[in-house]
């Protein structure tokens, strides 16, 4: 008996839900608008976050830490340092670069001016040997540096990592992540509250009906479902509209930027397809969830009795 009730439910429920949205059109519109507003603000932060993290990832992938060895290091020292570095779980990979290799690399990078280095050979090579280290997480750069520095005077001369701006970028990326999270939480609470109030009106308008449903033996889930559906639908409609607005705006801004030299050289905005692909799923799930949660709160009180 319980199972058969699920089968026929959707039709009645969908019918009643659509009627209800229509009946409460003003509050429904207000709910949808609030979801749209919340999602547009969220969308802006998300796009910022996605861009910054793409940018950071890009830079991070090129990020190395170099541990330079003293010119008179011994093989034993080299082995100890390499062992210690390889044992650390912060480190992705350790590659040794001998001073000859460093010189060859430098010379190759000079291209047609490589003759400038022609006076140097393996006897008077000024390039130090080094370990090239890739870390797993750029936040660990400093810790790895500290680790390598413990071998100072045990073969290690000094440690050098990326330019200043890398650290700044990493910090900024962390900051935008945190900020987005805060904005997400705050806006979610506001949206849930507005949907909660809309659905409460619906519930109140239909309290007679709810009473009758109970006397005829409707289960709580049956009574709840049209309200949850209504809230979810409001959230989804808001999500779709907000997505379209964001999409149009993003492509517009992209068009403006591509004609200017505003962006730092060598960087690009995250590909719009990538951003929009991520965003639409997030918006739909978020809008639906916010709507459902708001309605569940709204109906809870009326279900007792």
């Amino acid at each position: 008996m319980k199972f058969s009730s699920i089968k026929t439910m959707p039709k009645n429920v969908v019918r009643d839900t659509l009627k209800s949205i229509e009946r409460n059109n003003l509050m429904s519109a207000a709910s949808i608008l609030s979801v749209i507003a919340a999602l547009i603000i969220l969308g802006i932060f998300l796009i910022l976050t996605i861009n910054v993290s793409e940018l950071t990832k890009d830079v991070e992938s090129r990020l190395e830490l170099k541990v330079f060895l003293q010119s008179d290091f011994t093989d034993a020292q080299k082995l100890t340092v390499q062992q210690a570095l390889e044992d650390s779980d912060m480190i992705e990979s350790v590659t040794f670069e001998s001073s000859q290799e460093a010189l060859d690399k430098f010379s190759a990078s000079l291209d047609q001016y490589s003759s400038l280095l022609s006076g140097y050979n393996s006897q008077n090579n000024p390039m130090p040997a080094s370990f090239i280290i890739r870390v797993k997480d750029p936040n660990d750069l400093e810790a790895v540096q500290t680790l390598a520095m413990t071998f100072k005077d045990k073969g290690v001369e000094y440690v050098k990592y990326g330019e200043e701006y890398v650290q700044v970028l990493v910090n900024f990326s962390n900051f935008t992540n945190t900020l987005s999270l805060v904005v997400l939480v705050v806006l979610s609470i506001i949206s849930i509250f507005i949907i909660y109030n809309t659905i409460k009106l619906t519930v109140f308008a239909r309290r007679r009906e709810i009473g009758i449903m109970k006397y005829v033996g409707a289960t709580n889930n049956y009574i709840r479902s049209p309200f949850i559906l209504e809230g979810t639908l409001l959230g989804l409609i808001g999500a779709i509209v907000a997505f379209l607005v964001i999409r149009i705006a993003y492509y517009y801004v992209l068009g403006l930027l591509s004609g200017s030299s505003f962006l730092p050289v060598g960087t690009t905005l995250a590909s719009p397809d990538l951003v929009m692909g991520k965003l639409i799923y997030f918006f739909l799930i978020y809008g639906g969830l916010i709507g459902a949660i708001g309605s569940i709160f709204a109906i809870r009180k009326f279900l007792d009795v």
Partner: peptide, 11 residues
């Protein structure tokens, strides 16, 4: 009909 819909009777 409502009372029957609620307990899941077929159309």
């Amino acid at each position: 009909a409502y009372a029957m819909e609620i307990i899941g009777k077929s159309e």
